[in-house]
Computed example of a mutant assay.
Amino acid sequence: MQPTRISVVGTGFIARGLIQALRIAPDLEVNRVLTRRDKQSVYGIPYEQLTQSLEELLENTDILIECSGDVQHGTEIIMRAFEYDIPVITMNAELQVTTGSYLATKGFLTEAEGDQPGSLAALKENAVGMGFKPVVYGNIKGFLNLNPTEEEMRYWSERNGLSLEMVTSFTDGTKVQVEQALVANGLGADILYQGLNGQEAAKLEDGAYNLAELSLKYGHAISDYLLCPSGPPGVFITATHHEEQAAALEYFKLGKGPFYTLIQPFHLCHLEILKTIRRVERGDGILLNNSTQPRISVAAIAKNPLQAGELISKGIGSFQVRGEAVKIENEPNHIPIGLLQQARVIRPIEEGEILTFNDVEIDGSTALKAWLDVKERVDLGQVN
């Protein structure tokens, strides 16, 4: 039996780790790895697996893993993969919340288990299978600094072996906003406020209970996060259960109710992508995507005053803007932070202001067309 041919887009931390992990699975074969870098400069990946030819990649692929971290590049590649009828797994929440709802209408697209959104989707499957009814889909953050300095971020980038953009987006909250927007859209939840609630919690269980009470008042399941330095680097779901199970759940150390918190105290990124590959092989369907009916997006918020003529090379992970989750109906003209690449500011913008399409000039791209398609359907009331 021939091994399943896996191709990977990207050569960063996630891609390198995945390629190493796949070596322990004899029935899975890393066939091609697409890079835009000089192949001689890529480390940690066998040279013979590297290619700069998208056609070569797609002609030798059974399942494509997109983990480039680039919204525009990733969108273009996924569209081409769908022309070959190739199923696509992403670990790219930024792409999902920007163009994923358009892509989900064109082919098989799922986020991978391993990062927080996929981990929450898998935890939901487990929880619902046991009779729980989720009311909070929670992310756990230990630290935030909405406007870190470049010096600070360079230190942590070099210390952890991650890109400067990645470390900055973790620290300024953009990543958690993106992740929880994806969770809200994909798992049928809502958000309480622009920028999420994000309350501080000395104990995870207490903070989760507080969010559950807010969800109950709101009347809908919510996607949010806790700022809990003592919490594990994972995710949680707070849920209700049938009253007749209350005594058993208390015996199982989940408390007296009516809310019960299920914690997954880890997310292992590239190691868990293998579970999603197996899911696709089994034909078990989509774990998570942004849905074809999104209600939540991630707007760009100015960290500092921006001047006319200023160039934003890339919004996510920059020192000019950060992301905040918004309801599309409340901010219909916002520009998603994932679209800000080589964007030119055309009017002065104040610190804390949401950037709109009237504020910047951006080049046409597949990603822009995808977003405008979704936005048109939102405006026409074709999404709920």
Rank of each mutant, 00 (worst) to 15 (best):
G131Y: 15
D115S: 12
E152L: 14
I86G: 13
Q116S: 14
L103S: 04
N92K: 00
E150R: 09
S119R: 09
G100C: 12
E125T: 09
N126C: 10
K106F: 05
E165R: 13
M166T: 11
P117C: 08
G114Q: 06
Y155G: 02
E151C: 03
G138C: 13
L120N: 06
S157R: 00
G131T: 14
P117S: 04
F143P: 06
T98A: 02
T99R: 01
Y155Q: 07
G142H: 01
A104M: 15
A104P: 09
S157G: 02
G114V: 05
L109W: 09
A122T: 15
M153N: 13
V97F: 11
L95W: 02
M166I: 11
A127M: 09
K124M: 14
T99S: 03
P134W: 05
E152F: 10
E150V: 13
D115W: 06
A93M: 06
L146H: 13
T168D: 03
E113N: 08
E113T: 09
E150Q: 08
G142T: 03
S163F: 03
M153G: 10
M130K: 14
P134K: 11
V136G: 12
A122F: 14
K141V: 04
F108D: 13
I86E: 15
L109V: 11
G114D: 08
Y137K: 06
S157V: 00
L162D: 02
L146P: 09
Y102G: 02
G131I: 08
T105I: 01
Y102F: 08
N139Q: 09
P87Y: 06
N126L: 07
L103K: 00
A104N: 04
S169Q: 13
M153V: 08
E151F: 07
P117T: 07
F170V: 04
N147K: 15
V128M: 09
A93K: 12
S101A: 05
K124E: 15
P87F: 04
S101Q: 02
G107A: 07
L164Q: 00
F108P: 02
E151M: 12
L103Q: 01
T105F: 08
L164F: 00
G142S: 05
E94T: 06
G118I: 01
E165G: 10
A121M: 03
V135S: 04
E113F: 13
N139V: 07
Q116N: 14
N147L: 03
V128F: 12
I86N: 12
M130T: 04
N145D: 10
E165L: 13
M91D: 04
F132D: 11
M153P: 07
T168K: 06
P87E: 04
P134Y: 03
F143G: 06
A127S: 14
P134D: 02
Q116W: 05
V167G: 00
T149D: 14
L120H: 12
Q116H: 14
N126K: 13
G100H: 08
K106S: 01
G100R: 14
G138E: 05
L162R: 15
I86A: 07
P134N: 06
G142L: 02
V128T: 09
E125Y: 11
S101E: 01
M166L: 13
V128D: 15
V167S: 00
V97K: 04
E125F: 11
T105R: 14
N92R: 01
N126S: 09
V88Q: 03
K106P: 02
K124I: 06
G161M: 00
V128R: 10
